[in-house]
Amino acid sequence: MRKVRAVLVSAVMVLGVSLTIGATPAHAERLAGVFKDHSECERIGTSGITQGWWDGYSCVWEGDYRYYFLYA
């Protein structure tokens, strides 16, 4: 019984570690720029799509820093 329990505990631990390592954060986009003006952020985001640098982007206002962050 002890051997079976030891094997089961080991299998559960390995499964847990493999799921943790394979997990991707929800905000897997990379920071592509920081801008004072929303229009500048949008311009660079659109330019990045045109140039093929990224497939999509988002300009997010961060009130703590008082800047727009471009994520692509």
Rank of each mutant, 00 (worst) to 15 (best):
S58C: 01
G48F: 04
P25N: 14
E29H: 11
A28Q: 07
Q51V: 06
S58R: 15
I44F: 07
L31M: 11
L31K: 12
E62C: 02
W61Q: 06
I44T: 09
I49H: 02
Y65N: 08
G48C: 02
E40I: 02
C59Y: 03
V34T: 15
Y65W: 10
W54C: 04
D55H: 06
W54H: 10
A23T: 11
G33A: 05
F69A: 08
I44H: 02
C41S: 08
V60R: 10
D64S: 14
C41V: 06
S58G: 04
Y65C: 00
E40K: 10
Q51G: 00
C59L: 04
T24Y: 10
P25D: 13
Y68M: 07
S47H: 08
E29D: 15
A32W: 02
G33E: 04
C59K: 03
A23P: 00
Y57S: 03
Y67K: 15
G45D: 03
T50L: 11
P25W: 06
S47V: 02
S47R: 13
S58V: 10
G52K: 08
T24R: 15
S39H: 09
I44C: 00
Q51W: 05
E62P: 00
P25Q: 11
A23V: 08
G33M: 05
G48I: 02
G48P: 01
E29Y: 13
G63C: 01
W53Q: 08
A28C: 09
L31Q: 11
T46R: 12
G63F: 03
G45W: 03
V60Q: 11
D64Q: 10
A32V: 01
C59S: 05
E29I: 01
R43Q: 13
A23C: 07
E62T: 09
G48V: 02
G56I: 01
V60T: 08
R66K: 15
D37M: 11
G52A: 06
L31P: 00
